[in-house]
Structure formats: C-alpha cells, structure tokens
Design a binder for these strands. Sequence first.
DNA 1: TGGAAAATGCTTGTATACAATCCTCAAGGC
DNA 2: GCCTTGAGGATTGTATACAAGCATTTTCCA
Lengths: 240, 240
Amino acid sequence: MNDTRQFHLLAGLATGRDARSDDAIYQSLWEAIVEHRLSPGARLPEDALAGAFGVSRTMIRRVLQRLALEQLVTLRTHRGAQITSPTPSEARDVFRARRLLEGALLTEVVGNIKPADLQALAQIADQEHHASREQAIRLSARFHTRLMAMAGNASLSEALSQLISRTSLIIAVYGRGQAGCPCEHHTLIKLLETHDLAALQKWMHEHLTGIEASLDFTASGDALPDFEHLFGHHREQNAS
Amino acid sequence: MNDTRQFHLLAGLATGRDARSDDAIYQSLWEAIVEHRLSPGARLPEDALAGAFGVSRTMIRRVLQRLALEQLVTLRTHRGAQITSPTPSEARDVFRARRLLEGALLTEVVGNIKPADLQALAQIADQEHHASREQAIRLSARFHTRLMAMAGNASLSEALSQLISRTSLIIAVYGRGQAGCPCEHHTLIKLLETHDLAALQKWMHEHLTGIEASLDFTASGDALPDFEHLFGHHREQNAS
DNA sequence: TGGAAAATGCTTGTATACAATCCTCAAGGC
DNA sequence: GCCTTGAGGATTGTATACAAGCATTTTCCA
C-alpha cells in the first residue's frame, strides 16, 4: 500500500521543502517521538518514510540507525524499525541514572550560572505553560537538556539528553493521565537564583522521583504479555 | 590507488572469513582504534575498508556512522572519515565525567559484588600483565567497562563505556610514554573484597586523576595548528 | 470445518551506478 | 619566482536495482 500519508504530518514540520537533509529528518522524527505523536510500538516502514520526506530509503536508514543507537527506535533484522517500548527494568535504570547524573551535575551548574542561561530556561518554562500537552513534553525535555548544558561538560550533556529523550518514551508507555510539571520548573529557576546547591539537589531528586512514582508499571508495556507470570502455575502443576 | 593492503591487518583480526557482518567489522575497527593501531588523524577511505573486509561501501558507511556517533571517528561531509583527535577541552570533559560517573557508580557496585565478577576482573588484570603494550590498553578499557557493568545499570554502563573508549584516543594523542596501570587494577580488586566504599572511591579518583596528570596537553594534538593563537597579534596590529 | 503447508506479496539487506564535491597538481599570468 | 586558476583524478553522497527473508493468505487434505 506504501502508506505515505500516515507520515505526512512529520514531513510538514520542518522547512517545508520536499527533499531534506538527514539532520532535518532526524529532528522531525525525534520531535514526533518525544511529543508522543509516534507511540511506542509504532512501525516505521522505510518506504513510507522515504515517500513522506521525499528522499530515498538510504537516508531514512541512516536516520533510523541513529535513532536506534539512541534507543528511541528498535531495529530488528528483516523486521524493520519501530518505536522502542522501554521495559520496566529499563525505565527504572533511566530514572536511577538521571537522579545520579542530574544531581551530580547540579554541583557544576551552580558555579556556572549566567543571566542568559536563566533567561533561556525561563523562556522554555513559559512556553510550557502555553503549549499543548504534546509540545509540553518536548519542552520539558528541552528544559532539562538546557539546564544540564550549563554544567559545561559536552560529554555528559549528550549522554544525559539521550536519557531525557528516553524518559519521554517511558512516560508514553507507563504514564497515567497527568502530564509533566510546568510550574515545578519555575520553582527550579527561583532556586537557581539563590545558588543553594543542597536545595537544588533535593528539588531535583524529588522531581525525578515524583515522575517515576506517577508511573504504572503493572500495565503490560510490551507487545506480548508475560505468559510465564500469567499461566506459570499450570506448568508447576504438570511438572510436579 | 585503492590501498586495500593498509587495512588487511584489521580484516585478519576477527573470524577469518571474507565477508563479515557489520557488527564484526565494528568490533575489528573498535579494537584497532582502542589499541592505537589506528592513530588519531588517520584517514579511513571507504573503498579501502570495503576491500579489506570484503564487503561493499554500504556496510562500511554504517559502521563509520556508528563510530562517529560514539565520537571515535570524525565524519566530515565530502571529506571522509578519520580517527578523532580529541581536543584538550574534550579530554578534560571526559576525565571529569569519568571521575563523576565511576565514583558514583562504585556505590552501587559494592552492594552487588558477586564472586564471578571478581574472578572476571582478576582474569582481565592478569591478561594485562602478559599482554603487549597495545593490547594492555584495550584490556584496561575492558577492565573498567566490566567493573562498571557490576552496577547493574545498562543505561549508565553504555554511556560510560563510550567515555572509556574515548580515553584511549586521548592517551594516543596526549600520552607520554608510560602506559596504563596494570598493577593498580589488582589493587582495586583487593579493595573490592573489603567492601570499603570510601577507599574504593578514593582509589578511583586518584587513579583517573593520575592518568590525566600524566598527559601533556602542550603538544598540538590537532591536525591544523591554532593559527589564531600563533599569529593573532598580527591581526591586532593591523586592526588597531 | 479446522489445521497445516505452500505460495505470493511486502519489507528489508546489500551491492552498485551515477552525480556532486573536494583535493592535487600543473599551467599561465603578474 | 610566487600566486592564482583551471583541469583531472579520487572520494564521498544519493538513488536505485536486485536478492533475501518474513508475514499473510490461500489452498489442500483430513
């Protein structure tokens, strides 16, 4: 069927021209994933994407590989790409990693605060207020990414921004209703102005723990249910 | 000239067959980079690699893109790939990041020590003793990677293993003579057995700081010298 | 009528052809 | 003699053709 129409909403996002560089395609797909317009489990056929973006499969494959290395899409051989569905275990790893990294990086952030940074953060937080629920998720990711860039360590910032993107996938699978935390971000900006490291770290820890606590891991996020857990007693009866 | 011979040492490393999967090619290149058999700045022409590995450029390009996303090679448009030469600033970022991450992860490692892990670490440390200088560098990376895998957080382990690989590049550019630290790794294993977190963190901090201190950042690591800094006064004289 | 096996179509994997760009080297002008 | 400019070769960027594998459906048999 070569369903190009399904992905035309993606193509319309960026510059508007027909053929785009692979970086622009990456951006479009990244935004669609982080904004939950492409949900975990959704298939990403190469032909359909190539048609929507007006390029050949070559470029699409390069972009998909990049997204796969960032764990936003899952590539299975001869079975194509689909948006990654993080497992509960992976989800917990991501939150543990973020608590550790963002807490530690705050130490370096407080020594590096510049007015321009605070202004940029405030602008993002403001946009979150007026944005749709979908865009708010992406802006929330941008807020955290921008905040951690203030630590001035590109190596860590990059690793962290990947964790932040994956958090959006986790929320898509295990989130229940209520969205992120726009007002909380304004609180953080006020704390940044006081340079109170302990308070900032406490805030960040509670912020991340709060998001994690709002998730519901009982719902099966994966495509195939856990038969072992559901019907395991049958086997025990037969085996014994 | 299509100089395939230059890369035949790489092709001989893995399985020995002619055509290999992209993962095997990635492994071969990764080892050659980490073992300093391919030095920073070395060019990686796609045709030559394709010939050496007995595959087409398609696969080579995929592997090079992956190595580029891990910052082991640098991809410049229409100018091909070459082994990355980390800047002094990047080098310092990597060491800061490793001190932070590895120090913090030790906290989770000490709660998770299993005999099999200690045995695996001891085996790597032993191999370091008997290995050539080149292989010792790779084994040292493996040691740290294996150690941090004990923390049981795949997200952080992956980010960290990238930092560890990049450290090898940094040593290739800025290292002066003396190699790594084989005996020190045996010390760490003894400390692990005591479960003394504070001592472990102290050891790790000094270990990484010691390596960083042994580097010489005055030598120009980049291909093209810093003309701005060298000849900048000329422009100032003309401008004023 | 239900199930298993085969066939067909669709999607991905790999290689290759062609176009675009850059680098090198040589020739000409100042 | 040095710098600029142009042509040629070499290398990368992109698209496409073909092969290989999986999924679905259809058919056949019990």
